[in-house]
């Protein structure tokens, strides 16, 4: 009898624990599910009814109604995120290699400089770059805010630390004897680097590039200062759309973005594995 009550207690305990945890999951994931579900509503007479969840009829009607402004913004965000993540890799990978491999004095300071953008709140970065661009503009006559180069600079700034972080994490666990073995067997240091070291750190580069892409692709606080009318990134566009014209077509374009993000995540996960993705990254949420 005592045994049975013990088992029962354990079962009840587990039930409530599971219930509690599922509340966290519902809290986290329900907005995403609701956006996808709502986007499938059919055309309705009053706009209000188009925001019903669960949707009353399934259709792709609102996907055909996505305004051109949002598509342009989406394309700009895409180009910008690719540029930002490429540049972040070009800067971040050598930085990580130099940080881990060399023994220059003042390494702590150098690594603090690379990590500085993570410490600065994004909104502060936004206003700082806006004023920097005003200042440069006053000096040279070229104003960079509202241009691709301005936006890209801001996003490279906030995205690079992620690449430095992920590649550093891999390099610190890298066994340099692998390289030595390659050289002993007659490879030039160059060859050893490209054939041994680089393939080993590639998961870190992929993970870093993914984080960098996502940071750029979902940034509002920096881009809000550096965009110009007609030259707006997608998150900023829908940030303002929320205040001005809240249309059901927003749900459709948001769903497209969710799908893009999930596909990217899936792709990187397939290449390097979810475990590796988490191990290398301080996956600091974006937004």
């Amino acid at each position: 009898m005592k045994f049975v009550t013990y088992r029962l207690q354990k079962l009840i305990g587990r039930f409530f624990f599971g219930l509690y945890c599922s509340i966290s999951y519902i809290f986290l994931l329900s907005p995403i599910v609701v956006v996808i579900g709502t986007s499938l509503n059919g055309p309705t007479e009053n706009v209000e009814a188009s925001f019903k969840f669960p949707p009353e009829s399934l259709s792709l009607y609102w996907y055909t109604q996505i305004p051109e402004g949002q598509i342009d913004a989406l394309l700009l965000s895409f180009v910008l995120a690719i540029v930002a993540s490429l540049c972040a890799c070009l800067l971040g990978v050598p930085a990580a290699l130099g940080l881990v491999r060399s023994n220059v004095p003042g390494k702590a300071l150098i690594s603090a400089i690379f990590r500085a953008p993570l410490q600065i709140p994004a909104i502060v970065t936004g206003i700082a770059f806006l004023q920097l661009f005003y200042w440069i503009g006053d000096l040279t006559g070229f104003y960079w805010q509202g241009s691709l180069i301005g936006l890209a600079l801001g996003h490279i700034f906030i995205a690079t630390p992620y690449v430095v972080g992920t590649v550093t994490a891999i390099l610190q666990r890298f066994d340099t004897r692998l390289e030595e073995a390659a050289v002993i067997h007659g490879a030039s240091p160059r060859r050893a680097f490209f054939r041994v070291t680089l393939p080993v750190i590639m998961p870190g580069v992929y993970a870093g590039a993914l984080y960098a892409f996502m940071v750029s692709f979902s940034d509002v606080p920096v881009a809000i200062f550096l965009s110009a009318p007609g030259f707006v990134t997608y998150p900023v566009e829908i940030f303002f759309a929320l205040e001005n014209d809240f249309e059901p077509s927003l749900m459709a374009s948001a769903t497209l973005v969710i799908i893009i993000c999930l596909l990217l995540l899936l792709l990187v996960q397939k290449v390097i594995g979810l475990d590796a993705l988490l191990k290398v990254g301080g996956s600091r949420g974006v937004g």
């Binding site: 986290l28 994931l29 956006v35 998150p235 948001a254 993000c261 979810l274 974006v286 937004g287």
Partner: peptide, 16 residues
């Protein structure tokens, strides 16, 4: 599930 939620921008979640 946790990772997916961190990768979706907050603006979209606010719509939800």
């Amino acid at each position: 599930g946790i990772v997916v939620s961190t990768f979706i921008t907050i603006v979209i979640k606010v719509y939800g």
